[in-house]
Design a protein around this nucleic acid. Structure first.
Lengths: 201, 201
DNA sequence: TCAGGAGCTGACCGATCGGTCAAGTACGGT
DNA sequence: ACCGTACTTGACCGATCGGTCAGCTCCTGA
């Protein structure tokens, strides 16, 4: 029954539910998100949610699966492209774009990748993240190098993603994505692209 | 009246519960941690947990409160000490030590600071984190500078804390804290201590 | 010896969880 | 008119949640 929200074009119920669920999962966490709450927020009943998605876990899969796919592809391409400075530079760009385009999903599986172990899609995400760390930084690299990479990747992900938590309260929109993108690429390049001799500054 | 010394050698039950709870909260999350599970793991009954801590929230307060106190003190000292290069350097050291000494607690309130909004101790933690960001980087600083600080702080916190999630699986102990400390201080110094010629604000 | 507090526990409570199920509605094709 | 399909829902289920309570076992000080 189209009680309200006479949306101009067709909006698939499952898409709306997926989006609402993603917002819930990323903000209050998967465990704390109830199907009832998600249903209420989306304007459906709990039963409807379970009609479109066979379980809460399936809803999680639908919500963050595409982002995990994108991350895996990003990783594969980077591994295939070698470790040259050019490859790193392109990877950084694509990585930042990935973060900007999948903030909520990244927030979800980065922040809850530990607590949700056992969930297939989360396992995929964790594997990809670990692969990212391994491939961008060899195991025999000095600890300070490993730390540099860890700080860069985690810092970038968390800044975008939990910046939403701490750094502002809704008035964030002014910071254009393009500006954020440029600034983030700049900082990551400093950290990840080895300058001749020593640290980039 | 609880005399101070009657049970000195005995391990206080409340301490054990606090530690177990901290591990649970940081690994599987506050919402997903049940009092029953914490009690089982600590070898007590759920009722005993609620005897020592009047509520699940009180248990969280006991688990991460001290770390939040330390963070607040760290922040106050840094604000009082000005923004000189020396002050920054000392702050970085103390910050890294704080992270190393409070990994689980930091993991908890960094990762769940958003989902647990409303909890007093979490509110304190969020306020401190925001204060940290504000004080180390003025609001009118260029975006790239803000991003640099965000990446540094978040990256450092997350590398230590979620390194536990991704980077190893129990065989981490070999990486001495002292080495990690040195490497982390080095990376943070690169990012946070303004080099000559670079506009820091 | 005994009173009493600290520590601990099982039984129990109402609420909510994820999930099942059958019934009901709307609608397009025939 | 009839059927099939897609969709939505409330009633209901067993499990578990955080939390209360009465009562148990110790230990200690008087």
């Amino acid at each position: 029954m189209p009680t309200d929200a006479p949306t101009p074009s067709r909006v698939r119920a499952s898409d709306g539910l997926r989006q609402v669920a993603l917002e819930q999962f990323s903000t209050i966490g998967f465990a704390a998100s109830s199907l009832q709450h998600i249903a209420d927020q989306a304007g459906y009943s709990k039963s409807s949610v379970l009609y479109h998605y066979s379980s809460k876990e399936a809803l999680l899969e639908a919500a963050i699966g595409p982002a995990v796919d994108a991350l895996e592809e990003l990783l594969d391409d980077f591994v295939a492209s070698g470790r040259s400075v050019e490859a790193r530079a392109e990877f950084i760009q694509r990585f930042v774009d990935f973060l900007l385009g999948n903030r909520l999903a990244v927030h979800t599986f980065v922040n809850q990748g530990q607590s949700l172990r056992g969930t297939p899609v989360i396992e995929r995400a964790n594997t990809a993240i670990r692969g990212l760390a391994d491939s961008i930084c060899e195991a025999d690299a000095p600890l300070s190098e490993q730390m540099r990479f860890g700080v860069a990747l985690a810092g970038a992900a968390y800044t975008l993603v939990a910046g939403a938590t701490f750094l502002e309260e809704g008035r964030r929109a002014e910071a254009e994505d393009a500006d954020v993108r440029a600034a983030l690429i700049s900082v990551l390049s400093e950290l990840l692209i080895p300058a001749e001799g020593r640290p980039t500054r």
